[in-house]
């Protein structure tokens, strides 16, 4: 992130996506002289906020390396005979590896189909005026309001009729309905920031509409595509409601449906849950750090230009 902060404001303005994404050097406001007291206050507030942000993550990580007997004690201890036993049990004695693999497959397919569909639709919405365009845009926004409650039963019955209940395909399809409208909206905002002159120049060189999309615009939109990839991945990775409703045998569960099995109402096994939580978060966090720079830029570019 720091690498981007030297970008001059003019260049930033030409590329709104970067504007939002980077912490560019703040303008000189001549009120940077802050009293010592204000400075201490600022840092104190931020330290408290950072503590609140990090504490739950740190606590779960610390707990995951405590033996079960230590977790079930009422005194607080940061470390207590650290061990990787919980991870070993989780990976060898439970169905966790299956859930993890299922989640990877579901998330990968959701990502691939989601990108393909929202990129083409987003491009058409960005570049062409065609009958039905406005209606479509509103439809995409409207689908954001659909509660899972109204769609889940009809989609469940459709899947049951197709014999897809308890399969990964049913989840991929259901997640696409969640992710595609939002990603289309987001990518359209991103395509809008790529100058049309490029399309026109390519068109003069004899490229057809699909050629322009494939050879010119898509390569330029790589950061936008990265955000879409992240969003579709995380939608599938973190979804729970459909996963619990559709998946029925333990080995077919995804992480969202599986992990809750460790913490039934009575005698929860927090030692397994915390270890699982760490393993579930790790891939998401890695993907997140590659995409976060662009994430909100994509959101606001799409949102404010509607």
């Amino acid at each position: 992130m720091s690498g981007m902060s030297a970008m001059p404001p003019a260049a930033v303005a030409a590329d709104p996506v970067e504007t939002v994404a980077t912490s560019r050097a703040p303008r000189q406001r001549r009120r940077s002289e802050r009293s010592v007291l204000a400075s201490v206050g600022l840092h104190a507030t931020l330290v408290v906020a950072t503590f609140c942000a990090l504490f739950p993550i740190a606590w779960v990580m610390l707990s995951s390396i405590k033996p079960a007997s230590e977790i079930r004690r009422s005194e607080i201890a940061l470390f207590a005979s650290p061990t990787l036993e919980n991870y070993r049990t989780l990976l060898s004695d439970t169905d966790f590896p299956y859930w993890f693999l299922n989640s990877v497959i579901v998330a990968a397919f959701t990502m691939a189909f989601g990108i393909a569909m929202s990129a083409t639709a987003g491009y058409a919405l960005s570049r062409y005026n065609f009958p039905g365009k406005r209606g479509l845009m509103w439809t995409f926004l409207l689908t954001q309001m659909f509660p899972v409650a109204i769609l889940i039963v009809p989609i469940y019955t459709i899947m049951a009729n197709l014999g897809l209940i308890d399969t990964k395909a049913s989840l991929v399809i259901a997640y696409l309905t969640v992710a595609v409208p939002f990603c289309t909206w987001m990518l359209r905002g991103y395509f809008d920031t790529i100058p049309r002159e490029l399309d026109e120049a390519a068109s003069l060189d004899g490229l057809g509409p699909f050629g322009i999309f494939w050879r010119i615009v898509l390569p330029l939109a790589r950061p936008g595509i990265a955000v879409t990839a992240f969003y579709t991945f995380l939608t599938a990775w973190a979804e729970v409601a459909y996963a619990i409703a559709f998946m029925q045998s333990s080995r077919n569960y995804t992480l969202g449906a599986g992990l809750q099995q460790f913490v039934p109402q009575f005698s929860p096994r927090w030692e397994l849950l915390t270890a699982g939580a760490v393993l579930v978060t790790l891939p998401a966090a890695i993907v997140f750090f590659f995409a976060q720079r662009h994430l909100v830029a994509g959101l606001t570019a799409g949102g404010t230009k509607g």
Partner: peptide, 22 residues
């Protein structure tokens, strides 16, 4: 501070739910 404060965003929501329940 910026990176630390963004971190909760990277946690899948059901994991965050379990963490707070814990």
């Amino acid at each position: 501070y910026r990176v630390a404060l963004i971190l909760p965003w990277a946690v899948p929501s059901f994991v965050a739910a379990f963490a707070w329940r814990f």
